[in-house]
């Protein structure tokens, strides 16, 4: 991989059912996610998806691009910029920012971003993974 290469695109729709499943899995039943009456009176006016649920698509994209290396050495630093609502379709994109050689491999730094259907940016950040030299040369970028 080289700077400028794009990572596999991830697109999916977010539903309230997904939010409820995430609440059960994580134990995060904050009312902003699951209580319609509470959420109606919030700054958002309705329920919103968990930010970490939305951010999971970044990890999915990095796993698709880098395989097991992401599970063992992945790092990410993200900022939640605006909420994602049930009913939104989200798009997760990434591109390689830099490739730095290390002992026996390479550290690949990628810019990542998630937008919702309206084009509003929901999450931005960086994801970094260390891969073996052989793995880094595999053609896993999006065509």
């Amino acid at each position: 991989m080289k700077p400028g290469d794009r990572l596999p695109l991830v697109e999916k729709s977010v539903s309230q059912e997904h939010v409820e499943s995430y609440a059960r899995a994580s134990g995060d039943f904050n009312p902003i996610h699951v209580d319609p009456e509470f959420a109606a009176g919030s700054q958002f006016g309705t329920r919103i998806a968990h930010g970490m649920m939305v951010a999971a698509t970044i990890s999915e994209m990095m796993t698709a691009a880098f395989g097991g290396a992401w599970l063992d050495s992945g790092r990410m630093k993200i900022r939640f910029r605006s909420p994602v609502y049930p009913g939104d379709r989200i798009t997760t994109v990434g591109r390689v920012k830099s490739v730095r050689e290390t002992d026996g491999g390479a550290e690949i730094k990628c810019a990542v971003e998630i937008t919702r259907g309206s084009g509003e940016v929901a999450i931005t950040g960086d994801a970094i993974v260390t891969v073996s030299t052989d793995r880094s040369s595999e053609p896993s970028e999006q065509k």
């Binding site: 904050n30 009312p31 902003i32 209580d35 509470f38 959420a39 919030s42 700054q43 930010g51 970490m52 951010a55 992945g74 790092r75 990410m76 630093k77 993200i78 900022r79 939640f80």
Partner: peptide, 11 residues
Amino acid sequence: GGSLHVRQELD
């Protein structure tokens, strides 16, 4: 409720 998760780092 009403709190915001604004940044996250993970290793």
